[in-house]
Write a protein that binds this DNA or RNA. Structure first.
Lengths: 239, 239
DNA sequence: AGGATGTAAACTGTCAACAGTTGTCAATCC
DNA sequence: GGATTGACAACTGTTGACAGTTTACATCCT
């Protein structure tokens, strides 16, 4: 037993290669390192990470179920590409989920949770006063995460986070810019107020409105060719 | 190759073994053939199905992401066991999703879809008049599926169906008996009426109420020891 | 007898090799 | 010249084997 191993704790080998690989590929997809539509070669990825193809294949199976890649038999796996309609669907679904979480948290909230939520709100206000868009983006994310966690429904949280990851497939990098911090902030205040007041229905409506506004802001910001890469998904401009 | 069978056309080999295995294991779990809490041995399953361990392992990875099994490194995979609180969470989440779908369909419905929906409703009425619980159960399922499909949001449908599968993990077999067909039928009529009338908000409320009533009926029907198998999940009756 | 310890069996994690399929590209034929 | 065909290359699907870990059990000591 080599006792020179300088690991702080032995917590190293409890991780299986498959999990590591899946996490790494997911990271590459979410950061855009592997852009949507890219074809992923098992051999190449395996060689790149210094593992065999087994763990890579298993990781792919997980990513497929998560909706991040598509697998075609005997052809390979590609990073999933999301069309216009699907993007709208995802926004709507996420809105419904977030509304549900706001509602649920409003019904179950504790005083401590309210305190934490108020804190996040103040962080955002501070970022606005400092006109620090980067900080606002971060605290904004934090605010959402807080609600998602405090709603207490773990399955809903898992689904929500999965959808959020999926949405990275069409939100281009650098969307961290917030167009209208004040408007966004007002929506956050409405959500927090309803939750803290313990009014589930009001919280639900506020949460839904917030995501819908985000959706509309995003769609409005699209140049028409954004989804041109897969035009066959586009036509259904109805509804 | 004992798995693939009497396919009339050669359309069999486009299916990969992993998919077949995953489907088969999922079937065994949903039918209760592999009960919740059971430990699954890769070697045993592989031998039983006449394939090697590779496809089985890949299938497991997919089932894990779907929430049907849990995988612990170096220990194995067990059919997921759902505690009382998680069951309630799943019902609530499903209610929120179904409500969203009713709302969405009400906003997008076509005349043709309304016709189909009316047809399903009549099928259920016929089953009630005939006092055929089996037929009612079937047409009831059909009614729900129709809404889920016609809402047009494919991602929402996938999530909903995943949740529904997961709920099989705690709904014991033979729950197909419907306690109160008339009450259930009234709720269905309210949903259909709101959708056909094109009133999204009313449809949402009707759909939500329906699942909530189903949840309460289910919870009320529990003998207190139903979830005793994993008592550590029970205590958190607070919050 | 009861608990600790060491050993063996069984199983999971990983890998490398084989088999089958898809897509490409050049040679051939009309 | 253009389309068809056939072989080759690259890749995926599947398998069997090997290595490391966990678990159960028998043994030994107190």
């Amino acid at each position: 037993m080599p006792l020179d191993d300088q690991k702080p704790f032995h917590a190293s080998k409890v991780q299986t290669l498959t999990v590591l690989v899946q996490r790494e590929i997911e990271r590459r997809i979410l950061t855009g390192e592997l852009p949507a539509g890219d074809r992923l070669s098992e051999s190449a990825l395996a060689a790149d990470m210094g593992v065999s193809r087994g763990p890579v294949r298993e990781a792919m199976r997980g990513l497929q179920q998560a909706g991040l890649v598509e697998i075609v038999a005997n052809k390979g796996v590609v990073v999933r590409k999301i069309g216009y309609d699907e993007a709208v669907d995802l926004y709507n679904l996420r809105g419904s989920l977030f509304a549900f979480m706001c509602e649920t948290m409003a019904a179950r909230r504790t005083d401590e949770q309210c305190g934490v939520l108020k804190g996040k709100l103040e962080d955002m206000e501070a970022a606005i006063r400092a006109d620090d868009k980067e900080a606002y983006f971060r605290t904004n994310l934090d605010f959402h995460t807080t609600i998602v966690e405090f709603c207490g429904n773990n399955r809903a949280r898992a689904v929500y986070e999965g959808i959020a990851k999926e949405m990275h497939l069409f939100r281009r990098r650098g969307l961290s810019r917030i167009e209208n911090m004040e408007a966004s902030m007002q929506e956050h205040e409405a959500i927090a107020a309803a939750i803290i007041a313990g009014r589930p229905e009001a919280a639900r409506k506020a949460g839904l409105k917030h995501i819908r506004n985000g959706r509309d802001r995003f769609l409005a910001s699209l140049d028409p060719d954004s989804f041109a890469a897969d035009p066959e998904r586009r036509p259904a401009a109805a509804e």
